[in-house]
Design a protein around this nucleic acid. Structure first.
Lengths: 222, 222, 222, 222
DNA sequence: CATGAATGAGACTTCATTCAT
DNA sequence: GATGAATGAAGTCTCATTCAT
């Protein structure tokens, strides 16, 4: 937003370069030398901005997660209905991953295996995002939009699991096809078991309108 | 079961030790020395059975995958109905993961992220398993048990994504709770959007009976 | 001569140390650790200047060969007569070897057995030196100084074989005695069979004058 | 000749295999496993016949050297004249090398460079062969066949240097051409400077007859 | 602040040698 | 005597991190 200081720009350049290199090589096979080269800075400079190689890795999701968090808050505040909100969130995740494949790769393939990442501020924010989803599901259950007998944790896992799974396959199979056009097919399948059978209780929450878009016919196959 | 040759037993001991060490440290932070120590053999011996550290890693899923594949074929042959078969598969995956946490960790956190693993025989078997799921879904669509407008790839991804996601969280949160008791909650949510609305068309496929087990109330929360 | 950059000096220090260690232990029994210690640098530093242990070995003759080549060109340009030139070359080889026993050892005992060295730039220069000798012999045959019925390749082999053989024995028997004082005895024996019988045809090539220095009396015995 | 015991045959088989492997790979890059495989015996068996890998290497020239030594004594006893004897010896060396390229390779490229080999029984026999040459040269000087002012050590070095040099080049350049046909060209060049000018003093020693074979025109060139 | 040369710890892997079968 | 599985010492090379310039 605001003009960045020169040092801020350098930091950012390093982070972008690291994202790319980590995405293509993984954490261990990426070298500081390579990141430095990709960023156009010296190896020593990286240690002016980050404490270690792992520090660089952990810093990658910080900005994005923060921005996404804020963005999602803005968007969600405009949307009515738990179902519509869940759809929006799935869309935001898939859209974010689709537009930033290197970032997705780091998040889904590199950071996921890192035990230490779980003690990180960035991970806490990701977890916040998850908690938010659970909260939305619970609110849907509370207002009668969702069935009372669903397990919110399971529903969240089904949605987020689908997002991760689809994205991971998309990444490893060469990024063919579109991720975002899978949003509706996924939601169609899942929401049927989440929404209350009685359409009247949810009609004013715009779900039915969206649901009318029908069931998509995804092309991908592994 | 059957008596193994001595060399077979040694190989197996190494593999078990490697599974444990890889699960706890990840591939790169695990060392051959540590695996050798855990297996009670010398470092050199490992190279009598495997060509490299990566070779050890890739050998881990071979046995298990083969056995699981055979087992699943037996079980599935006894089960009627696409829905019941999908449920059985989800159960088998979660059950396998729950009984072998080290194995799950290696598969979900280390191997599935490894590009080179995707050129491996073991991965081909995993892929076969996936193809099998898609085939079951398609057969359900063909015989009217499943809606004709679902995307089989998406349904499979939703199911497998849920399995992976639940298992990963279970692993990273200290293996609290039970994985297998999440089978029904997951299936309940997903199947509602997969099965045809008209219960008659599927009644003879024993789905309704199973469905009566009702919607589980999972305790876990992150 | 000219001031070397600091990095140039380091590289040179490593090369000198490697020459010494290779000469005393041979390629395989020499270790990078030992070379590093002898050079006063860390093991890692060696890999900043050379790509591998073999790379260090192959770099040893590069400088010397280049310098010797240039030096020999200068000297030879001042000398008339094929016989005198051959003598000068034999002198230069034995003198070079005598003044740099470690270098000789590497060249004659270590590099000689290395197949891969034959695909090296340095080897190409050594081969150039040999071709030069053959050319001189042929020129001597052409201008009547040498007999027309000699085999230039054999004459060259006799001279270079004597140089190698004498040097190798000198090295392995403890470097006793002088190599350069064997130049005349060798040339006396060989040239008699190379020069044309008729002294008139070659008299103006100053051979006779040199020949008058008489036949040396070498002391060495194996 | 005589029937070998079974163990003698095994030992011999190992030695032949080692010769081949050492010739192609050099001492350090050859492995006991490879030699065992080539010999059709187990690795352990090699240590029943030899104390170490180096022991195998040092045993290679023993038989050959002994046989050659005996053979040369027989042949030389039939030859009159120092010059003719030297020619016979050069012929025997080149002939031996030409018929046993693997053996030549081991001798010239691996063993002669090995310091420890010089403390070996086999080397002592090689040295005996060299002393024998010097003795022949001295006898030629004594009986007036050779000039009195030559250096016997130098003459021997010239001859043996030529043999080694020609053989080494022949080996490394793919064994093209014939080694033995270079005997006369070499001797022609060298003997001219060794023999006394006055042909009468040597006529009865059959040199002149041989000399008449004329100067060969070797084809090889490097 | 930036650089990049220097470091050195540590990992994988090889292979001569041993020894129980 | 023969085997070959097992050993473990040792070596090359990489690379995160530091620090003098």
């Amino acid at each position: 937003m605001a003009s960045q200081s020169k040092t801020e720009a350098r930091r950012s350049k390093i982070l972008k370069a690291a994202q790319k290199v980590f995405a293509h090589k993984g954490f261990h096979d990426a070298t500081i030398a390579e990141i430095a080269r990709a960023a156009g800075v010296s190896e020593g400079s990286i240690y002016e901005y980050f404490s270690s190689k792992e520090g660089v890795l952990f810093a990658i999701p910080l900005e994005v997660t923060r921005e996404s968090h804020e963005l999602s808050q803005v968007h969600l505040s405009l949307i009515r209905g738990a179902a519509n909100r869940l759809r929006a969130l799935v869309y935001m995740y898939l859209s974010l991953y689709e537009s930033n494949p290197d970032y997705s790769s780091v998040i889904l393939l590199t950071l996921k295996q890192n035990q230490k990442f779980r003690e990180t501020e960035a991970y806490e924010m990701i977890r916040d995002g998850f908690r938010n989803i659970t909260a939305i599901i619970k609110s849907g259950m509370a207002n009668g939009e969702f069935r009372p007998d669903i397990n919110p944790y399971v529903v969240r896992s089904v949605l987020m699991g689908a997002v991760d799974h689809l994205t991971t396959n998309w990444l490893m199979d060469g990024r063919r096809g579109s991720l975002t056009e899978l949003v509706d097919p996924v939601l169609d399948v899942v929401m049927e078991g989440v929404l209350t059978k009685d359409p009247r209780s949810a009609s004013d929450l715009h779900w039915s309108a969206w649901q009318r878009t029908g069931r998509a016919s995804g092309p991908q196959e592994a």
